[in-house]
Design a binder for these strands. Structure first.
Length: 875
RNA sequence: GCGCGGUUAGCUCAGUGGUAGAGCACUACCUUGACACGGUAGGGGUCAGAGGUUCGAAACCUCUACCGCGCACCA
């Protein structure tokens, strides 16, 4: 047995064990195992990503679940991998190329560019995997997957072809969200609306029949006036009914456009007249369709004005054009007014620029199995933790729209669709969709677009597994993810599972992708702001690991992570995690100083303190068990922290010193055996949270054979034949000790000075505990005598055990004040209890034990009051 | 507008019907034979507000205010 060093050094211990676990293949899942399966697929981080605190939280939880499951006896698969992040990676590589080589992807061409992405990826990608290893993640790295793996990519294409053949995927010209920065279409989920302050411009449109008469139209986007092909009013709006059917002059370029009536108009907004710009607004497009209006597109893909008819604006950026358009209108007397106005604008999640609604030819998916997906969650075949996310999920599914799945980026899964070269313009194009190129490739051109990255991620729960693995481990047990991707990923994986049925049978319960979903918290900074690079408020987890150890970081974070709420991150909390690791280390060191530990200690001649400790351990095991059932990791962490620090270190170990330092070998042995038993339980309970230090202690103390990772979890000890009423005595002793210490502090006896105490108690068994109580009080002498006579002014406190007195000369008036205060407090408590007991309704209706508790309190307080008053009179 | 959370000690958060809790921070004492990343003791809260249910409400119900999030609208 190696000796424990004076301080715990995570920097050497953590990498040492991680390497050992890898070398021993401890994380590898055996698909042939007879054990029951437990599986998790890791939400794949982006290949460009670096570890954030969010990842730390997320993956710590997954690791905790995986490690716990191994100890319970499951065959565990935690399947890691990465995501190719189409838009994100392409943008990152383009940026790098521009900076380092001064070229764009168009300069290179598609094939060369993709080659460069692969090179870049090998060099700079996947850092996060190494970082996850430093955290201690017990993933099966032999099964690591990537969404661009050959097999995986083939599966994505197969799914596309399948859904196309089922008629669920179709190509169509529709209004989509266009990201002018990334120059691609986006799904609705990738658009976030943000409040923006701008102006509401009131623009004058002259009525054709009535020269000199104008309509006023309120708009936030004067730069799109050139694309107006009508104005619209509400059919019941009496102010304008006579105008419906007439024409007005579009201000620029000057052209006749019709006035139509449409129910979609809100008469209350602005002037009640809407300029209809079908090419650049979703609602306008629908109105345009209803009234057969023309569609004029005046924006280029990168968000510039394309309108040679108005040369002043042509070629300008859309935001420059906005103010310029207002100036132009004003100069022509066509701007009635402009008022400051705040509205919501859709931003691209990725590029953080306003999205343009745009009419475009794209691929869409009509979601399969939406009803079924709702049912499996409502019926709790899939359980959400916390439950309230069910409602969010339901709301989304009920309002679901077809998914725009094509992206105008090169990096990703290319759409397996080809168009006939010989097609005559304006006729329906001939489309070929298949896994292999058409037989006569010279006559076809493949679609340039790739698929939305999420269109590959939605297969992640099973396409990452080979058939044998799938048979053993699908459906997965638990998905751990952030609530921010509930639509992007969670819901879509459910659709995919139900639609493609990868399970062993066609039954629904064999095909859902997971049984439980745990939604983690979102980590914010102290001020409640989201962590972001630009704010610089996001600490680097690797720095935190260097400072506090991976175990410290994990524990600190887990203990403050309430389920389903945001976390306010404070480094102090991680420091606590580190301190806790040190505490554990030292209390183990204390044990080791008194000889080797036993892996199977015999629990004999239990002291009353040991009984209390073991009873508390049982309670802790129950609480931890319950915590896991309900995914309340902060509760588990807190319970273990309290048990170890308070029950074990502060109380038990301090009492046990009496036996350990005594000459009685058998009682010393007994105390050490209890320590071994409880330490063994502690490190096993704690192992999922703090894998490295617990493995180190398991090994150094020799608490069991082999790795702690596969040690069975501690079971509750049967305390048969043990007198549990002794717990009351222990509680009374601890209370008395605290009261005695309090007297010391009030009498200003310095901590390093021993003091004489007396205890007036009728408790018979107390003499055996005299030494321990004296130790806890740091007493030079402890007299136990029910009729101890003390001089006037002796500080006194009453407890369940009797009266504790501090034998010391003291200022009488101070002691008088103190007693008066204490008497007042006890009197107040007694009053509360008596008012209850005098209340007939309370006595009749409250549960018996509650009434009984109050009766006992009444007795105790009355007795305390009597003794205190007696003491007070003597002064 | 609809929906979901939240509001408890200076800070971060537990507490779901029976006399308000933890950690940090703060104050005092202490380097005593595991640990100063420590020990002991202490101060500090009309549990956002109002009403209701109840013998009893921080907890359950209703309303209000404020904070956060999602969806819809967003001319």
């Amino acid at each position: 047995m190696a000796e424990l060093s004076k301080t715990y050094d995570p920097k050497t211990v953590e990498p040492k064990w991680y390497q050992r676990w890898i070398d021993d293949h401890n994380f590898e899942a055996d698909a042939n195992s007879k054990k029951k399966p437990f599986s998790i697929v890791m939400p794949p981080p982006n290949i460009t990503g670096v570890l954030t605190l969010g990842h730390v939280l997320n993956n710590s939880i997954q690791d905790i679940l995986a490690r716990r499951a191994r100890m319970v006896g499951f065959e565990v698969l935690w399947l890691p991998g990465m995501d190719h992040a189409g838009i994100g990676t392409q943008t990152a590589v383009e940026k790098w190329l521009r900076k380092n080589e001064g070229v764009t992807r168009h300069d290179l061409g598609r094939e060369t560019f993709l080659q460069r992405v692969l090179e870049w990826q090998d060099k700079h990608g996947g850092i996060i995997i190494q970082q996850l290893k430093r955290l201690g993640c017990s993933c099966d790295w032999t099964r690591q997957r990537y969404t661009m793996d050959e097999d995986y990519a083939r599966a994505v294409a197969e799914v596309f072809v399948d859904l196309y053949e089922k008629g669920l995927i179709y190509r169509g010209r529709r209004m989509i969200n266009w990201d002018p920065a990334a120059q691609t279409a986006l799904s609705d989920e990738e658009v976030i609306s943000k409040p923006q302050s701008g102006n509401l411009y009131y623009v004058r449109y002259e009525i054709v029949d009535e020269p000199g008469n104008f309509l006023e139209v309120a708009t936030t986007r004067p730069e799109t006036i050139m694309a107006d092909t009508g104005v619209a009013v509400h059919p019941k709006d009496k102010r304008y009914t006579k105008l419906v059917g007439k024409d007005v002059w579009r201000p620029m370029p000057r052209e006749k456009i019709p006035v139509v009536a449409d129910d979609a108009i809100d008469p209350e907004f602005g002037t009640g007249i809407l300029k209809v710009t079908p090419a650049h607004d979703k609602l306008d497009f629908e109105i345009g369709q209803r009234h057969k209006m023309a569609v004029i597109d005046v924006l280029t893909p990168d968000g510039k004005i394309n309108c040679p008819a108005v040369p002043e604006l042509d070629g300008l950026d859309r935001f420059d054009a906005r103010s310029r358009a207002a100036e132009l209108l004003d100069a022509r007397g066509l701007l009635a007014k402009a008022e400051p106005y705040q509205n919501n604008v859709g931003f691209s999640d990725r590029s953080d620029v306003p999205v343009e609604p745009r009419l475009s030819e794209q691929w869409f998916l009509k979601y399969p199995k939406t009803k079924e997906a709702l049912v499996v969650v409502k019926k709790h075949l899939i359980r959400f933790f916390p439950r309230h996310w069910e409602k969010v999920y339901e709301q989304w599914i009920k309002n679901i729209q077809d998914w725009c799945i094509s992206r105008q980026v090169w990096w990703g899964h290319r759409i397996p669709a080809w168009y006939a070269k010989s097609q005559i313009p304006k006729t329906k194009p001939q489309i070929y969709v298949g896994l292999k190129p058409p037989k006569d490739p010279e006559n076809w051109i493949q679609d340039n677009d790739t698929l939305d990255t999420w269109f590959s991620s939605w297969l992640w729960a099973y396409e990452t597994m080979d058939l044998k693995t799938r048979k053993k481990f699908y459906p997965t047990s638990t998905l751990v993810t952030g609530p921010d991707i509930i639509f992007f990923w969670v819901a879509r994986m459910i659709f995919a599972g139900l639609e493609f049925k990868p399970g062993k049978t066609t039954k629904t319960e064999d095909n859902i992708p997971f049984h439980d979903v745990f939604f983690t918290s979102i980590i914010r900074d102290k001020q409640g702001r989201k962590m972001s690079k630009s704010l610089g408020n996001s600490p680097d987890p690797l720095d935190l690991i260097d400072k506090y150890g991976a175990d410290g970081l994990r524990f600190g974070l887990m203990r403050i992570a309430p389920s389903g709420q945001d976390i306010r991150f404070d480094e102090k909390q991680i420091e606590e995690g580190r301190n806790f690791a040190t505490k554990l280390w030292n209390v183990a060191r204390f044990r080791q100083m008194h000889g080797p530990s036993e892996a199977a200690p015999k629990l004999e001649k239990l002291s009353i303190y040991a009984i209390e400790l073991l009873a508390r351990l049982n309670e802790t095991i129950d609480a931890v068990e319950k915590g896991y059932r309900e995914y309340e990791f902060n509760t588990i962490g807190q319970r273990l922290y309290d048990f170890i620090w308070n029950d074990y270190c502060d109380w038990f170990v301090e009492t046990a010193k009496t036996e350990i330092f005594s000459a009685d070998e058998s009682s010393k042995k007994s105390a050490l055996a209890v320590m071994d038993y409880v330490l063994s339980a502690i490190v096993r309970l704690l192992h999922p949270f703090m894998p490295h230090i617990t493995e180190e202690l398991w090994s150094l103390l020799g608490l069991g054979d082999g790795s702690i990772q596969f040690a069975p979890l501690p079971k509750k000890i049967a305390l048969k034949g043990v007198d549990l009423t002794k717990r009351n005595l222990v509680a009374a002793i601890y209370e008395t000790v605290q009261a005695g210490r309090n007297l010391r502090a009030l009498a200003r006896v310095p901590s390093n000075q021993k003091a004489k105490f007396a205890l007036r108690s009728k408790e018979e068994e107390l003499s055996a505990e005299q030494g321990t109580i004296a130790r806890l009080l740091s007493a030079s002498e402890l007299v136990i005598n029910p009729s101890f006579q003390a001089g006037a002014g002796t500080p006194i406190a009453t407890t369940a055990l009797g009266e504790i007195l501090l034998i010391v000369d003291v200022d009488l008036s101070a002691e008088r004040d103190r007693l008066d205060k204490e008497i007042a407090k006890v009197e107040a408590d007694l009053r509360i209890v008596e008012s209850k007991l005098n209340n007939k309704s309370f006595v009749d209706r409250a549960p018996r034990d509650v009434v009984e508790l109050n009766r006992q309190r009444q007795e105790t307080y009355t007795e305390q009051l009597r003794l205190l008053k007696q003491a007070r009179e003597k002064l």
